[in-house]
Amino acid sequence: MRWDPARYTQFSTHRDRPFFDLVARIGAADPAWAVDLGCGTGALTAVLADRWPGAAVTGLDSSPEMVRQARAMAGGPPQLTFTLGSIQDWEPQPGPGVCVSNAALQWVPGHEGLLARWAKELDPGSWIAVQVPGNFGGLSHVLMRDLAQSPRWRPALAGVLRGEDSVTEPQRYLELLLDAGFVPDVWETSYQQVLPGEDPVLDWVRGTALRPVMAALPAEEYTEFEAEYGKLLRRAYPAKSWGTVFPFRRIFMVARKE
């Protein structure tokens, strides 16, 4: 699945806000290292390097397009590097560190098991900070899945889109971290966003949730799917004179290993 850095950053003001809400709760003073799993364009990874100038900071992403743009970023701190790789293959480094993953683990099936393994392998004094979308039950996702399962699209899109099991609920994440011996802080936020433009919700999901559909369909068929889906979105999210309201529920967890 190919990612489009320009498309992804189209709504960066909205998309970046959960990252800052997440890392603001990390209490690490002087970690030996920090990692941003699913770093995207690397712009937010650079924030980690600025906050902890004594740490070796790595951004990891599975998208060559994203890593290429991250490495081209001008003026990055010298201790900041970017690596092409899979989140599933990442292993914690020795010493107290900070593991951040912002809006990425929902793409990883079975990520609860990964969190449990990382929690076991991290050295004492380390932190885990994760944010995942909690809106898989929202209309934008439900309408997309329903359309993909319709007779017209089911043959090509069966199994392409994951459902509400992509993430779990906050209580489950809390229990997982408690069982691993962490001191966790778990919460959720629903941002009530006002998006501008003629088809803002469609523009939004083009950057993320629609990517698997784009990858699965030939260009002409994808255009047809998007046209049908766009009509559904316009009815579900009616535009007002001041814009279109798009609720954005997110799940956060920040935890320290004693």
Rank of each mutant, 00 (worst) to 15 (best):
R71P: 11
L176N: 06
E65P: 04
V67W: 06
Q193A: 02
V108Q: 03
E220A: 15
R154V: 14
S190E: 15
K257G: 11
A119K: 01
A129K: 05
R172V: 12
W242M: 08
F82D: 11
P5L: 09
L48C: 08
A43Y: 11
V47T: 15
P238L: 05
G97F: 02
F248Q: 05
T9G: 07
L48T: 02
Q131L: 01
V186E: 05
G230P: 01
T189N: 07
F20V: 05
Y191R: 02
D185Y: 06
L202Q: 00
K257A: 10
L44M: 14
W107K: 00
F136I: 13
W33I: 06
Q193R: 12
Q193V: 13
W187P: 00
E91V: 13
G75V: 14
G76R: 15
Q192G: 12
P77S: 05
V100Y: 07
R154D: 14
H14T: 06
L147I: 08
E228L: 13
T168M: 10
Q106K: 07
V213C: 09
A32S: 13
Y191W: 06
F19M: 05
F182I: 08
P247E: 10
L217D: 03
S150F: 14
L60T: 12
T189S: 04
V194H: 02
V186P: 00
L114K: 04
P92L: 09
G38T: 01
Y229G: 09
R17H: 10
A236W: 10
Y173N: 07
G54H: 11
Y237P: 02
A34Y: 03
F248R: 07
T45M: 02
S12I: 09
